[in-house]
Design a protein around this nucleic acid. Sequence first.
DNA 1: CCGCATCCGGGATGATACTG
DNA 2: CAGTATCATCCCGGATGCGG
Lengths: 133, 133
Amino acid sequence: MFAEENFARDTLTPCGQPDHEDCGLRLVLDRLGEKWTVMTMAELAAGPRRYRVLQRALQGITQRMLTLTLRRLERDGLVSRSVEPTNPPSVTYALTHRGETLAALVVGLVDWSRAHKNGIEASQAAFDMRRDD
Amino acid sequence: MFAEENFARDTLTPCGQPDHEDCGLRLVLDRLGEKWTVMTMAELAAGPRRYRVLQRALQGITQRMLTLTLRRLERDGLVSRSVEPTNPPSVTYALTHRGETLAALVVGLVDWSRAHKNGIEASQAAFDMRRDD
DNA sequence: CCGCATCCGGGATGATACTG
DNA sequence: CAGTATCATCCCGGATGCGG
């Protein structure tokens, strides 16, 4: 009870609860941690895309992973999937409103990554230097 | 140990394509995707912490994962590690300036997660419903 | 008190082939 | 074009024990 009374954090702590799992963080982080999720959302942030277009844009992704990634995003209500019963069928994916709000944050991460790429690589190199010597 | 466990090997995806700018994104996303990285940064965002304090705060983390997480953050120049040669030794971790700028974005994700937790769970339930029928 | 090493399993990822 | 299905692989991360 008094063991962890040092909880003066107001905004930053995940949830301030003993159990961090239920703050919903994992719900998002696990998805974001998947290999193609962020890049897929970034691509969709530019506008709706058809399956094949996405596959071409996300160089290196397999059909299986693209389908899997889109399904999970759809399940979370972040992406919508609309089928036009033409021949051959045409499936278009787009961000939902919820997806767009998350995508906005994701874009922040993307920008940060680009801005700090060199610095991070330098830090890593320095760190490895110190170790390998 | 860390050098041989190759951190840098598979962090870069092909991405040699002109259209997509993901190189450097993985550098950050892979780190953020790790299970404890975000919560660790969130905890450190509230102020410097000693090893044992972190372990208590991040309920459920093992020593191995805490050490691994901190090492990787240190390698990226996001966290600093300072040892005071007291007896027993005292090791304190803190966010670097770079780490603080990233932590600010991470906080955005945390807030977003909390705000959308219920909505996401509802979407998932609805999605699973439709599927099971 | 702080940190490192070994063993191991599960799940995410990948490769390939096939279908409406 | 837009997926499924199956099999193989690989790495994260958990449990545990040792060492400074």
